[in-house]
Design a protein around this nucleic acid. Structure first.
Lengths: 202, 202
DNA sequence: TCATTAAATGACCAATGGTCATTTTTATAT
DNA sequence: ATATAAAAATGACCATTGGTCATTTAATGA
């Protein structure tokens, strides 16, 4: 039974993943050490590299996993929206679950910047996995947009405001609340995407 | 003449500052090495620590310097605005000079996140020096706001959208242009801060 | 029982930020 | 000029990092 060996291997991988996720969540990307990850799981450092080729790699896989879960929540939130306002509110219900996952949004940002210095990782990050809103946001929102303002830009702007709000939170600036963010984002989207007398004021 | 020694000392400090600014600008914060900084300026590593106590410290001083210059530009841009639209456009003229300073906005973000893991540096960053818009934005904008939406929140939201846009640029997502950012930010601010029939739609 | 294969180890490597005893350069007092 | 003190500069050294790899330990199938 070679089975048992594969099982053990899978289990070790899982133990390391769990250990890593815990440490990343506590201390962030840079401050977490491979040595710590393996030690916490009860192994020696070298064993880590049987399962991943680098710290980047294990982080990416953890990140993908978390984002998958986030996306699932988003799809739930959006399933029965019938107007732009409802869609936007649905999206923000879901964005707020990310915000509440406080440390992790910060850590995603940390890794995003770290990755931006490395073409390979940067490409991986951009490859749909990371960008939470853009295209999908656009897709959903298209039906509800009256103006000729491109929906994918609406999506990108929404993401931008969201990530800016994350930075605001990270610094603990304390001026904005979640509700402010939601109100601003929705107001912005409606002003740009809905054809009222004031929409294109500029 | 102890003068000469002090002059030499000042000059060395300057050479190191220039070297550091160049390297940070090229390679970012983490990737730049103290060894490189001193070597490029023609000194040995140890000499660095006569002038600064850490890499953080020299970076902060360079950052302050750059931000001072930015702020000067901003004050110029705002000197003769007479309406909310004009104020906002003035602010965005200045924000776009930061955006065009491409690498540096990225590096500021990199350092901001790095700093967020260290209470001491975080405090220093927040101590007015870094936050470009918030209070000042609020101060300037107050006169032009009709609604009861707090001006300091307008400022923070503007900053948030700005920094989100920076991240968008960093990742090279290519959906948004500077003009989109400007239009969105101004639309948002007006929709929240100007009393029209649509302003408080939510 | 024994050879084969997989899992796990930890000494080792180059590079990092930072320290510090030592050397080199410069200024002053006699 | 020369000796002394003080400032400027050096680079070997430290602990720690991500990553490598020859070696050891354990499971498997004959």
């Amino acid at each position: 039974m070679a089975r048992k060996q594969k099982e053990k291997s899978k289990q070790t991988e899982n133990e390391l993943l769990l250990s890593a996720e815990g440490l990343f969540g506590e201390k962030g990307y840079v401050a977490t050490t491979i040595n710590e990850i393996t030690k916490k799981a009860g192994y020696a450092k070298g064993n880590f590299y049987r399962y991943w080729n680098s710290k980047d790699e294990i982080f990416l896989s953890i990140m993908e996993d978390r984002l998958k879960k986030y996306r699932f929540k988003r799809d739930e939130s959006l399933s029965n929206a019938t107007s732009l306002e409802e869609v936007l509110n649905g999206i923000h219900d879901f964005l707020e679950t990310i915000i509440d996952d406080r440390n992790w949004s910060k850590i995603f940002l940390e890794f995003t910047i770290h990755a931006s210095y490395d073409e390979k990782i940067k490409t991986k990050l951009n490859k749909s996995i990371y960008r939470l809103s853009n295209e999908v946001f656009a897709e959903i929102v298209t039906d509800f947009v009256d103006t000729d303002f491109p929906p994918e830009k609406l999506g990108a702007l929404n993401t931008a405001l969201f990530e800016g709000f994350l930075i605001h939170n990270i610094l603990g600036t304390n001026v904005l609340e979640k509700e402010d963010f939601r109100k601003a984002a929705i107001t912005m989207a409606i002003a740009l995407g809905k054809n009222t007398s004031e929409a294109n004021i500029i």
